[in-house]
Amino acid sequence: MLSIRTLILSTVISVFLIGGVSPRAFADTFVFTAIPDEDEARLRERFNKVADYLSKELGVKTEYVPVKSYAAAVTAFRNNQVQLAWFGGLSGVRARILVPDSEAIAQGYEDQAFVTYFIAHASTGLKSSLEFPKGMAGRTFTFGSKGSTSGRLMPEYYVRRNFKNAPGEIFTRVGFSGNHVKTIALVQSGAYQVGAVNFKVWENELKSGNIDPAKVSIIWETPPYPDYQWTIRGDVDKRWKPGFKQRVGEVLLGMKDPELLASFPRKSFIPAKNSDYQPILDVAKQIKLID
């Protein structure tokens, strides 16, 4: 029979084990993460390859840790549980405010001028236009993740600017799909009539044959803004070796494998700096996502 003594004793020992045994496993590994903006399977495939590439080029064991939310990616970076991250514009700005000496070191070529597509279900009758489509009012609308640049920040900014009102007042229902693939699926199925999506993910899904043009189409495109970037913590030089940060930057910029680049999908990586993202910070403050 189970005695209370056994239970208490084994639990007490177990507590020490939980605290002591497990957490040290990754101490020497250079760990990075990425915002979960797409299907996890695809992210895993892409970033495990990136991890192999970084391990080889840096000579330091590098590992990719998947997370379930944008906020979890920022928090992991802030808590030094990852030292490098593939952030969106907004998550990167947030992370660099929270970790003062961190730096944006590389961005995709396309990230200099990123755009958001507003997409609509065919039943709405909304058509592609150069003007902001005010016919959206009174429909149901889905953003991507709450912390997304292309799926939340910029579309909300343009909705507020054009309607002079909050999304909740303009649309009959406002949702957050979680990621861009989901946004496309929700608008395509009619669960939401209109949505805002990252143009790169849209193109990727279109190429993969997951979009039915008879059901969902682009109705508007935002003006360009800076988006995704690799951000690294400032204390990595101290933890690994002097010049480590710079070396990581060089290696990222030197990513030339067409297959790997296509998986992002980006043409190439180019240098980035924190000030490139000032416009994102300004917009975030304007719509009060950052104080």
Partner: peptide
Amino acid sequence: VGIYVLAAPFLLGGGAV
């Protein structure tokens, strides 16, 4: 139960420091 509870911490997996 005692054995299970003692074994559990080893199965929780690694993770963050």
